[in-house]
């Protein structure tokens, strides 16, 4: 069942003969993991990883409805559908959580499963009209990205449309983090201080959610609804275990994204399975390494250097 490991086919070919296809695949994988990972750092730090989970599910009906209304699969249409769905999700979760005694975790579960179910139903009811199917929801189209139509600028073929879009999304995310670094840092660390500095953490929160929705659409088309969550959490979580400064954490999550994209490509080619899923498995392996380092480091040093201060925080 496991195909034999053929050095030539698995390791060499993707970078030589297969480069026109696989090059785009690995680039796209990297861009997706990069955008997701950068945003995901803040989700991990703000303890909002599961909101990422919720949004990655609930943008499905947003995309489906946008398709059905406009009959086009234009980038703008898709992103606006997702943006609306993402904001609806966060607002609904807040609404249920505030207005009833249902706790936030249950509110998240209810909202995203409802929206996702609605999306799946739409897709199966209008299977002929929607340019999405169950496979896309699960696996994404990462492996096929090289066959997408190329974007033309000034008559020159630049890159496949999805790769170009994702590249732009990445630039936006990087710009966002660069310009609003202070605001993101303070509102994640100490929202009360952010308020007192006049930073309006509520606005930062909603901007982050909007950016998340935009990032997730691109990633959703590439790796499917569930694996997006892994893309969001894995780089940040791995980096969080290894370093103790935010800039290094961001940098390390970029490295994680690159490594898992490349390793995922080879694993996917070897096992002939979805490259998105293989990227997640590779990323998880990197996380496990980081985790092992934490466990071993603890054993070597004895107990971690935690003075009396940390024990008093809980009390």
């Amino acid at each position: 069942m496991i195909p034999p490991f053929d050095w030539q086919r698995v390791v060499v070919a993707p970078w030589t003969d297969g480069l026109p296809t696989y090059g785009w695949v690995v680039l796209m994988g990297f861009l997706v993991a990069l955008a997701c990972g950068l945003i995901g750092n803040f989700l991990v730090l703000r303890r909002m990883a599961l909101v990422g989970d919720a949004i990655s599910h609930s943008i499905l009906p947003g995309i489906a409805v946008a398709f059905l209304l406009s009959k086009s699969r234009g980038t703008i249409v898709m992103f606006s559908g997702a943006l609306v769905a993402g904001l609806v999700t966060t607002v609904l979760i807040e609404f249920i959580h505030r207005r009833t005694r249902v706790k936030q975790d249950a509110a998240i579960g209810i909202v995203f499963s409802t929206l996702f179910a609605f999306g799946v139903l739409l897709i199966s009811m209008f299977a002929g009209q929607v340019d999405l199917d169950a496979d896309c929801v699960l696996y994404g189209e990462l492996g096929l990205v090289g066959m997408e139509p190329y974007a033309m600028i000034g008559g020159v073929e630049i890159a496949p449309q999805p790769v170009l879009t994702m590249g732009i999304v990445c630039l936006l995310v990087v710009a966002l983090i660069f310009f609003f670094y202070k605001e993101l840092l303070v509102s994640s660390f100490d929202p009360a201080l952010a308020t007192s500095l006049g930073m309006r953490p509520g606005v930062v929160h909603h901007a982050l959610m909007a950016a998340l929705s935009v990032v997730v659409v691109g990633a959703f088309r590439a790796v499917g609804a569930i694996l997006v969550i892994a893309m969001l959490i894995l780089p940040g979580a791995t980096a969080y275990l290894l370093v103790s400064r935010l800039p290094r954490m961001l940098l390390l999550s970029v490295i994680h994204a690159a490594l898992s994209a490349v390793a995922g490509l080879h694993l996917g080619v070897w096992l002939d399975c979805s490259i998105g899923a293989a990227m997640v498995v590779a990323g998880a392996a990197l996380f496990t390494l980081a985790w092992l380092r934490v466990l071993l480091g603890r054993r070597l040093v004895g107990s971690p250097p935690e003075p009396e201060g940390t024990s008093m925080i809980g009390g």
Binding site: L45, K182, S188, F189, A192, L197, S244, L246, R248, T310
Partner: peptide, 20 residues
């Protein structure tokens, strides 16, 4: 009120006072 596992060092926290 804050998460002390947050990836910042002492200097970063004090610098936050200047952000306003």
């Amino acid at each position: 009120s804050v998460d002390w596992d947050f990836p910042v060092n002492v200097m970063d926290v004090v610098l936050m006072g200047r952000y306003g």
